[in-house]
Design a binder for these strands. Structure first.
Lengths: 385, 385
DNA sequence: AATCATTCATTCACTAAATCAATGAAAGGG
DNA sequence: CCCTTTCATTGATTTAGTGAATGAATGATT
């Protein structure tokens, strides 16, 4: 009971930025006395602090604004892909302080765990309070076990426990797209939105569904396999997903293949980066590849818009390096294919994409866990020192 | 606080059928004492009753099972379509006691309201405690105002208040698909499922999304416009929805048109009922129309399955009269197009379709509202007689 | 048949945690 | 300089839970 209200007060301060006790009371339907009591507890435990006074509310005493102390601890996030691990160390507000990358020789669990441990050892990571691990694949409800990851070749790997044993800090494991969505909800564009969607483009096509501030995973997990949606049964073939799926149109490999078919020289169509650069330089064949991909993306987004009627879609992933090439046609198709005004009412935001975004997502995952745990803990019992 | 736990105990009894106090306590993480207290209150107010003793649980005292008293009141539900109004009177368990229908000369709000009032007047409706109204279109959050209904030609009609003034009972207005989904959640196949989907076929194609036991409407409403999803930009044209949309493939009109194009004589393709009868009688052209429609339905369902990874999809609507013709090909396509095992893990249930199902949905809407209100009301204050 | 262990339900004292009403603190306006 | 307004806090009160003990009903055990 107390724990619940503590958490709600804390989340309200996190969401609504600097905020007065009076406003918290009004928003949460609590009495001012209760908010004084609860926030006092959270301040004593270092989670919140009295930031400054409000500018003005007209007449009457100025409010004392409360803020979350995002600097009270540091956390680390690791993104594991098939080729490398990337690590970011951030404060509890997911603001990056340091990043590092290391290539992987293979993706065996031992190699990956060893890589994470030694990479963190080279960083200023002695005092991190929690670690988040992102990876492509299905993760169990426990936030620790990898059920199945085709890209890494893992099946039923309790990677959370294994790393915890090595590092001695709490570890949370999550699917990369879901972690990114969660980080967007807590610290990114999704802040203030109870419901929104995150679509990622890159090696594959991902969908993170955030409903009521939480990532939706479906009754038994597995929700968000958007890349496997079939857009055209006669469409292109692909290795991982089926024929004519979104991934068969929009994944890195699909774009490169389509570029080669359009006559782009093989050396330019060797990597997504090269192809994007060529198109941005004005090559008509390359930019046409992206324009047509944008149309497919627009159709894909229109499906989501018709189903969810969202107010926000965050677009992210390596593929969004080419957002300038993709989005014009995507927007056009979306607005024409979505029902009524839905296509115009949705805010399409492209997350500025850096290599460390996935790792930042993992750190955000760890940070949100850490904060929620701390806020839910009842401060009553005597804490041993 | 008390109100919340009262409601939770009540909902638990509703969901889990006859259930002992001990089990409620375990499921809701409440003490047995609290459950005794709360359930005693709910029994005193006539919402629950001690049904019978449990069969056996091995050793120990037999549990006293609690049940919801669905007979404590009666409610009415009205479905408004462009051609007629249908009314059902049910108990609080959405069990139909009486139905009646009346054709509409026009769809002006006054005509419809007058029709509802006089139709209820001809039925045994003196004691109904609440009324639910279903209609095609967008309904405001207040559950009373129709924002926009192209089929009825309404815009911003406060139909809830208008009927309430005439009848003196609380009226809840809701979009027809959402009301059906809610009724399935409370009284139908969705009982016991926190998350599931309802897909309706008929004049259009509808989608009701139930998440956490509640109908999802999106941040600003408007979610579930599944019929406007574009399956094939080169697909058939249609009047209401766009080119190649699900409605353009699967609505009644679309099926009739496609039948005529396949060579079915005009008199057989005059109504959906006739076409279905012809196909069920073995006509190859007619049944081919449904087989191909089933493939489209399967693709549509696979989109939902890939996004939501649901465990249950309830199929309903007039169009489901032809379920025997549609479902074999729909299942086949779904299983091949959905990611991994998702297509096999989802339970596809066809709701046995009677003309009164929509009206029953409306009554279920009213019943759920009535029960929730009654269960949330704190029994403490003295009730004036 | 009597006793015992077990499970379900209830009672009552206790307590956690909210609210309520009163009060103090800080601001601007007349 | 006082009054009004808004924010924050305090202490008494109330609500609604828990915990431990008790009673009730049942099958198993001796």
């Amino acid at each position: 009971m107390r724990a619940r209200n503590q958490r709600e007060v804390f989340e309200e301060v996190h969401r609504r930025g600097p905020i007065s006790r009076a406003e918290i009371a009004a928003n949460l339907h609590l009495s001012p006395a209760a908010v004084t009591n609860i926030s006092g507890d959270l301040i004593a435990r270092g989670l919140l602090f009295e930031a400054r006074e409000a500018e003005t509310g007209g007449v009457g005493r100025k409010a004392i604004l409360l803020e979350v102390d995002y600097g009270m601890a540091r956390v680390a996030g690791v993104k594991v892909s098939s080729a490398a691990i990337t690590c970011a160390i951030t404060n509890l507000g997911a603001e990056v302080e340091e990043t590092a990358t290391r290539a992987l020789t293979d993706t065996a669990p031992e190699t990956v765990i060893e890589g994470i441990v030694s990479l963190l050892g080279e960083m200023d990571a002695m005092d991190v309070a929690a670690l988040g691990v992102d990876l492509p694949g299905a993760v169990g409800d426990d936030g620790a076990t990898v059920r199945h990851s085709p890209l890494l070749g893992w099946r039923e790997v309790p990677v959370g426990q294994l790393i915890e044993r090595r590092l001695g800090v709490p570890v949370t494991v999550e699917n990369d797209v879901n972690a990114l969505a969660l980080a967007e909800a807590w610290f990114g564009f999704g802040r203030g939105h109870a419901d929104f969607l995150t679509v990622t483009l890159g090696r594959g096509v991902g969908l993170g569904i955030v409903l009521g501030g939480e990532v939706y995973r479906g009754p038994k997990g597995g929700a968000g396999e958007f890349g496997h949606v079939v857009l055209d049964p006669e469409g292109p073939e692909t290795a991982h997903a089926g024929r004519g799926t979104l991934e068969a149109f929009l994944s890195d490999d699909a774009l490169l293949r389509s570029a080669r078919r359009a006559g782009v020289p093989a050396e330019d169509a060797a990597s997504p980066e090269a192809l994007t650069a060529l198109a941005l330089a004005g090559d008509p064949r390359a930019s046409d590849v992206y324009a047509r991909a944008g149309e497919v993306l627009g159709r894909a987004l229109s499906i989501l818009v018709n189903i969810f009627a969202p107010t926000l879609i965050v677009l992210s992933g390596e593929g969004m390096r080419a957002s300038d090439l993709l989005m014009p046609s995507a927007r056009r198709v979306l607005e024409s294919a979505a029902f009524g005004d839905l296509g115009r009412q949705v805010d399409l935001v492209v997350d500025t994409w850096g290599d460390d975004a996935w790792a930042r997502g993992a750190a955000g995952l760890a940070a949100s866990r850490y904060l929620l745990d701390a806020a839910s803990r009842t401060g009553g019992e005597p804490q041993q020192v």
